[in-house]
Write a protein that binds this DNA or RNA. Structure first.
Length: 566
RNA sequence: CGGGGUGUAGCUCAGCCUGGUAGAGCGCUUGCUUUGGGAGCAAGAGGCCCCGCGUUCGAAUCGCGGCACCCCGACCA
């Protein structure tokens, strides 16, 4: 490709909206253009990178035995009603209707549709195992798109779904997908770690996320330096810090003016936060609940939601708090009758906690579960935090932030049951297929490749995702020997399968070098009278900055080397 | 949905406080010159100052109401 013909506009300065480095470089290198919040156009150069990432994904999915299909993005809303997800997806689902008022959704994911396809084709245990995948545009009406390509409303996802006759088969399909993912991220130059993840209210067994660690990530990841355990904060298992031991004492009422928070209360009474009981109010599927947890801990809302088997969990609005007779800042389960009480084991097992008296400026000392109050439901939903101890080896956790690149998930039979993916087993018995699902966000990978591979001057593409293999800079193209050398290298590259981007523009040399660094192809070859006079072509490695003057054959060999090195 | 910020030329921004016919740098066009790190000289083009209402003789500027975009949080695969 000749740059004089290429639709490309690089920017000297970063647009003000870009905060992340990947976002800045995507815009400066002219790879994408924003159309609306969370919706992007891809330029010819940007689209080539996109396609190369897709290509890696396709090769590795095919290698793992998965088969590519194409499913509609436009889907009848009935399909979503059948699985119940028209409600659980809530406002995230883009909805529309056709001219006859029939309801449709733009697919945010494809479990329902792939189940439709599978239900038609899978009738016997002999039809499995099978894994189907596609590379499709997904639509999600995110509450807040952000971070350039990190969270967008229209994006490309590689989504795969496995169908097995039993859970042992699912384990094998899951491992195959997992291994394919390891190869995909490695080839694309995105360092990731697998972490344990929440499997959601749907249930299911194992769920792991492939996380790219970066301070600008939106997920909190807990890492155990002792045993290597790694988990998303919403999933992380940890050892509860111990309570202060003691035999139950008589409950007493105490005047505690102006102590609406645990910190204020603990300081006023000169006690530790773990000697208090915290009350938090939620609305779970419409019903107000009071959640009790030891004062030094926070609620893990995902675990709480799973415990309640709720599809919606939101903080209770202030008006509803008052209507339920709850006194914010001084609430507790003691003496409370009209509201459902859910307690964390930490609050149930500890003795002599200070809890709210359900009266402004008063607390109760020495409250004890069983004697003074009783939970309707008890569970384990404290949030693991930095420094908490690993449930496996008791080492203190470290926390990092990260971005979810991919997710592998043992779904089980939830969708096969609701969508009717059934088969006959060896004994002629009708059973639901056991499913797994596996997703990768293509644009997130693109952003992560840049986050992980850049310097002050621009992008440094890993060889496998670079939009072209070689950046040829022609200086003084009006001179015949330069022109001839450029043509000759272009042909030589083409004949061995290297793609080239040739800067044949009439701009000054400095402009071309700056653009080459910004665009970031792995190898830059400068062809100029000066280089030719020195006996060859000037070959520069983008990553190391190393420069050599080589003859055309040695240049090709060098390109091959860099390409092989990734 | 809560909190914060920003909307002026393609991009980065000044002007706004103190109302009086729209500015800079970069980019773009033309000509000449130029080709080793965003080069030089000269001449140009380009704006519904986010939108609406109001105050005023007069609004980019003051007031009210919207909208869009960005950041934090909530939430979200």
């Amino acid at each position: 490709m000749r740059m004089s013909k290429l639709l490309l506009k690089t920017l000297r300065e970063s647009p003000a909206e870009a905060d992340l480095i990947s976002h800045q470089l995507l815009l400066r290198a002219g790879l994408v253009m924003p159309l609306a919040a969370g919706i992007y156009c891809y330029t010819p150069l940007g689209w080539r990178v996109h396609q190369r990432i897709e290509q890696i994904i396709r090769e590795e999915m095919d290698r793992s035995g998965a088969q590519e299909v194409r499913l509609p993005a436009l889907q009848p809303i009935e399909l979503w009603e059948q699985s119940g997800r028209d409600k659980s997806m809530g406002e995230t689902l883009f909805r529309l209707s056709d001219r006859r008022e029939r309801g449709f959704a733009l697919g945010p994911t494809h479990e329902e549709v792939v189940s439709f396809m599978a239900s038609r084709a899978i009738q016997s245990y002999r039809d499995m195992p099978v894994t189907l995948y596609q590379v499709q545009t997904k639509f999600r009406d995110e509450q807040r798109p952000r971070g350039g390509l990190i969270r967008v409303r229209e994006f490309t996802m590689k989504d795969a779904y496995s169908f097995d006759a039993d859970w042992e088969g699912l384990d094998r399909s899951y491992d195959d997908a997992f291994n394919a993912y390891v190869r995909i991220f490695d080839r694309a130059g995105v360092p990731v770690i697998p972490v344990q993840a929440d499997s959601g209210a749907i249930g299911g067994k194992d769920s792991q996320e492939f996380i790219f660690l970066t301070p600008s990530g939106e997920d909190q990841i807990l890492l155990c330096p002792g045993c290597g355990y790694a988990a998303n904060q919403e999933k992380a298992e940890f050892q509860l810090p111990p309570a202060l031991p003691g035999d139950p004492q008589p409950m007493t009422r105490v005047h505690t003016p102006g102590t609406k928070t645990i910190a204020e209360l603990a300081s006023f009474l000169a006690i530790e936060p773990r000697q208090t009981c915290k009350a938090v109010f939620y609305r779970a599927d419409g019903q107000p609940i009071l959640v009790a947890i030891r004062g030094d801990l926070d609620v893990n809302e995902v675990k709480l939601k799973n415990l309640l088997k709720a599809s919606d969990l939101d903080p209770l609005e202030d008006a509803a708090v008052r209507a339920a007779g709850l006194v914010a800042g001084y609430a507790s389960a003691v003496g409370l009758e009209r509201v459902r009480i859910v307690a964390d084991v930490s609050a149930v097992e500890a003795t002599n906690l200070v809890a709210g008296a359900n009266e402004v400026d008063y607390h109760l000392q020495n409250t004890n579960h069983g004697r003074d109050w009783k939970a309707d439901l008890v569970g384990n939903f404290a949030l693991a935090r930095d420094g908490d101890r690993c449930a496996v080896c008791q080492s203190p956790f470290e926390t990092r932030r990260g971005i979810e690149m991919g997710h592998v998930f043992k779904l089980g039979t939830v969708y096969s049951e609701s969508m009717g993916v059934n088969y006959l087993d060896e004994s002629g018995e009708r059973r639901p297929a056991v499913m797994g699902c596996y997703g990768i966000g293509v644009e997130r990978m693109l952003a992560a490749v840049i986050e992980a591979n850049h310097d002050d001057n621009g992008i440094i593409w890993p060889a496998e995702v670079a939009p072209y293999d070689v950046h040829i800079i022609a200086l003084n193209l009006d001179q015949p020997e330069v022109q001839q050398a450029v043509d000759s290298l272009e042909n030589a590259c083409a004949s061995v399968g290297f793609t080239t981007l040739i800067d044949d523009r009439s701009d000054a040399a400095g402009v071309k070098f700056k653009d080459a660094d910004l665009i970031g192809l792995p190898i830059r070859v400068t062809i100029s009278p000066r280089a030719l006079a020195r006996g060859g072509l000037e070959v520069r490695d983008r990553r190391s900055g190393q420069v050599e003057v080589l003859d055309p054959d040695a240049t090709l060999a060098r390109i091959r080397e860099v390409r092989a090195a990734g």
